[in-house]
Design a protein around this nucleic acid. Sequence first.
DNA 1: AACGAAGGCAACCGCCTACCT
DNA 2: CAGGTAGGCGGTTGCCTTCGT
Length: 343
Amino acid sequence: MARSGGGVEAGGGLKKGPWTQAEDKLLVDHVRRHGEGNWNAVRRETGLQRCGKSCRLRWANHLRPNLRKGPFSPEEERQILRLHGLIGNKWARISSHLPGRTDNEIKNYWNTRLKRRQRAGLPLYPPDIEQEIALLRAQNVNPLADADGNASASASGSFPPPLLYDASNPFALPPTVPSPSPSPSGSYSPLMINQNYPLLNQMQGMQQAFHHHLASQQSPQPVFHQADGGAAALGHVGFVSSGQPPLPTRQPQAAELPSNQFDTSSSCSGGGLLESLLLGDDRLPRHHPTMVKVSSMPALSYREPVSSRLPVHGAAGSDSDGTSHCLPGEDMHHGATWNFTFD
DNA sequence: AACGAAGGCAACCGCCTACCT
DNA sequence: CAGGTAGGCGGTTGCCTTCGT
């Protein structure tokens, strides 16, 4: 959370630390009027003493409508594991496959999970996920391989994370496909078909092939359940902001989709899943330089920092002292409830 | 009840890239 | 083409809460 205890001025008079309700309101109002983008203009036009980066981050991680708050569903967790196994620490790319989830959220989830499993001496991926990843890799040509067929690292150098079977060549098939083990939960949620997430659809096909492959090798088959989390996580998303108008309201340009979506006509045609993921930078829709008009915004409520929390009467308004106030039932850390009452 | 460790997460930082002039 | 700027991304930090002793 706040690194400075709140309300610290950075160089140039810019404020750092946790955002207050008043600041959020300024930012939301600005986006409502001018749309996303041009974040440095926020300071000029609203007087908000925050740098553009901070504004963008605040908007993307907390104020943007259609954010999906709360714990990850089991299927979302599995999806994160699969995608991380395929593309590594590409949080933004992973989050683009998890509607309503932010890269920061996924990154935090992974880091805490990583620490937990390392402490417990557990492998990074559960065995069944590891097998899925191995098969997904095996069914794709490595688009980054050089002429000799050696898998090359991505520009960032963090890809791919090694799997147990062959850390030196993560694209190579494991010598043998190990026998499956039940997932920790003992159930499995098939991915939902959703045209907005073609990679997930492709993954589903591979997943089904994978389990078909397993089924052909042995019995009994894994038990499949249609879990609620699957639908929620993979397109049929029960956003907290249910029934709210979608963003953006700007009329989409040709071949342009909301930031969480893919162009189904191009992203996967003729390419493998890995290829889509690895080359996805060029295929994912880029933010259009023109701004996105936003017509309606969520109503937010705030938690007052503990250090200064006091019984507050009529605390709904902005706070001149830089504190904000907690309402019953709101998220502990996010500092806002997400009932998205649009006015 | 007090204390420390662990968990959780918002926010900052630095680097990189795309775009504009 | 070079330099400047804005935005995006991944890594890291540090505060608060929860849990265990």
